[in-house]
Design a protein around this nucleic acid. Sequence first.
DNA 1: ATTCAGATGCAAATCATTTGCAATTAGTAT
DNA 2: ATACTAATTGCAAATGATTTGCATCTGAAT
Lengths: 163, 163
Amino acid sequence: MGGEGHHDCRLDHCHGGGLGEHPATPELTNRLRRKSRRVTGARQAILNLLRTQSHPISIRGIFERLPQGDCDLATVYRSMHLLEGMEMVKRYEFGDGVARFELLRDGDDGHHHHLVCTRCASVVEIEECGMGQLEERMAAAYGFAAVTHKLEFFGICPRCQGV
Amino acid sequence: MGGEGHHDCRLDHCHGGGLGEHPATPELTNRLRRKSRRVTGARQAILNLLRTQSHPISIRGIFERLPQGDCDLATVYRSMHLLEGMEMVKRYEFGDGVARFELLRDGDDGHHHHLVCTRCASVVEIEECGMGQLEERMAAAYGFAAVTHKLEFFGICPRCQGV
DNA sequence: ATTCAGATGCAAATCATTTGCAATTAGTAT
DNA sequence: ATACTAATTGCAAATGATTTGCATCTGAAT
């Protein structure tokens, strides 16, 4: 397989259109190839955008931040499904009926939570979570398998308290 | 699925006649009056139906279980908003894009969680939750106020594992 | 019975998300 | 490069959950 050779990223493979400046990461390329999926400009653009975000972002948010005309809204939806299936992004739901996504970085299983301000929607990333034990206890007590959880915190951020 | 019913014997307060076949609880009446809202047949019917459910139920689910013609789907939506605002029901989101509601019984602050089967959607009610401390720590660490949380567990129930 | 703000039914409108389909393109073989 | 084929995309229309405008109706106070 791959080996330690120099990996070429075929950046020079752009045909006109508006998608010129989206370098593909070998990460993306590898994962896509593994499923005989294609490295398209839209996917690269989306992934590059996600790389600049430090908090979950909605699909509409992604679409609006993409250089206009870069790709269709439906394509963003389809891409996010694909990326989610490939475990390159993680989906969050904060209860407002809009899904938000975060890039899963190398070696990150994406297990963390959020503290969301119910007034201004600002977000703090929370690392700690003592749920592992509870999950196990739950599995034992009710016979469930593959127990996971979703945990999000809500409150009023310092700035909003002042208002 | 759970056969664990819940007895709530307040049905004896039927001021029969006049208002149709949906006895109002003094609880409902009081809370509504306090906000100059009206005790209508639809609201009574919905609340009575919720009283028979032991797990969160969707608005469509409520609508379909209501005697045909009892009320409009839009009315169920409106009623649930009202009841939620009056803290008589609690809203849950399990991530499938459909809100579900549970009746908040007397003296119940509704603080509990669920273990949801990702295959058959059966639900187990979970009482324990060691989040109180975490909430406090979170408030202290990030300066947030009124910190609450949403926590739900997902897994594969015993029956589905056998398949 | 009268009155009127709050409720409801019904249909149309929103919003997020999905999907059908014809046109386009990435990756690969020629 | 050229050709070829399946994966992708754009666009529009379809879904599905939830909301809303509006004319009509009703609860409850007088």
